[in-house]
Write a protein that binds this DNA or RNA. Structure first.
Lengths: 211, 211
DNA sequence: ATCGCGAACGGACTTCGGTCCGGTTCATGG
DNA sequence: CCATGAACCGGACCGAAGTCCGTTCGCGAT
């Protein structure tokens, strides 16, 4: 039990970003602004990369140089939008922020994430549809570490890595979209379901035998 | 508590498939064979739809007419490969098949699914990377109903729909790929984690309060 | 102020998934 | 055996993602 924390291949090395050139910074801002605008006015799925480049007054090559691919751009736009969410987690008031017991924080986290999904579903779908590259992204890693820490505090006797994956897997954009749209489950039901999930995972008897 | 089973928009109507024309059937077989061959010999990701059409000696239009899109083709190929898995679930020996207690069947199901993921990861990644169209597919629905039934039997006092999503969410191709490749978790650890997940979800105290 | 270099730029180009539509083929009724 | 129309075929075509590479330009050094 309790397998070691695996840091298998590459741990997140500090990247000393050689300082960004002035025009590069300008273009990055332009691109993000253009993307945000177009996403808002005609929908994420209806917006091509060419259109964003044009709207930003920038070549396509520049766009891809800075953001790599469509999913990463979506992620970057999203990142701007919920930077506040990011540090509500770290420095905000309880129960989302520090100060509340870990279980309560996990529940609050789920609720906040579900609201976020409801709010930015298109963007999140786009960002997560790169066949798992999303799971390697920096924003996801941050969420993962956050949850993992809480899990470890609340339930030191389980495989925290795995449990974290389960909890975050339940807050995935495609799953959420399906629950919400195809099955018509409403937001409150999902919140209740998640809260119950946390409860059950965190309060279950230790290593229950077969049933 | 216990929200009603939602059958929101369209329930699966029986489609009386007007009988398939001879040439159509022949081409479908050719395409599946070609796809399987190319996937095997040069990898799923490296195989374009054009290449499959060419290998099958068939026009591109035909390919897309029969399978709709890339993900669906992957799913069809997969379906051929694990038809046996499908009915091991329904008619095979316990604990996978009927006869064992639901909890045991859920654990066996997870183990089998993980083996399946290990075996056909590329194919499954491809099939599931259609931004959630996979979740509407027939094979997925079958798995979902299977798990849902077991959940309901093992734990009649919870939101079975939601719990089912959680259990299947933990067996998703992108998550599996990330656990396996990026984090280097081995298969046994995942199996243990899933079994423990089932245990915790099914044996947790009823409606535990806050902690 | 000038120079030189490497990073940044941008748009033509390639690739590939997916659609369209005119021509062909299969199955059925006469 | 033939007429007929529905279903099917195939490849030209399209739009969008992502790459390439010759050109430009910011910026530290002289």
């Amino acid at each position: 039990m309790l397998p070691p924390v695996s840091t298998p291949i590459e741990l997140p090395v500090y990247q000393p970003h050689p300082p960004e050139r002035a025009d590069a910074a300008r273009n990055r801002r332009r691109i993000l602004a253009a993307a945000e605008r177009l996403f808002a006015e005609r929908g994420v799925a209806q917006t091509s990369m060419d259109a964003i480049a044009a709207e930003a007054g920038v070549g396509k090559g520049t766009l891809f140089r800075r953001f790599g691919d469509r999913a990463s751009l979506a992620l970057a736009v999203l990142d701007e939008k919920d930077r506040q969410f990011q540090d509500a987690l770290l420095h905000g008031p309880p129960p989302l922020g520090p100060g509340a017991p870990p279980c309560a924080r996990l529940r609050a986290f789920g609720e906040a994430m579900l609201d976020r999904l409801e709010e930015n579903l298109d963007l999140l779908l786009d960002a997560q549809t790169a066949a798992g590259n999303y799971l390697r992204s920096e924003p996801y890693s941050a969420l993962w570490l956050h949850v993992r820490l809480l899990v470890q505090q609340a339930r030191p006797d389980c495989d925290a890595d795995y449990t974290t994956d389960v909890l975050l897997g339940a807050l995935t954009a495609p799953v959420f979209a399906h629950q919400r749209k195809a099955r018509g489950m409403d937001l409150d039901r999902l919140k209740a379901g998640y809260a119950d999930l946390v409860d059950r995972l965190m309060t279950a008897p230790i290593r229950a035998g077969v049933s």
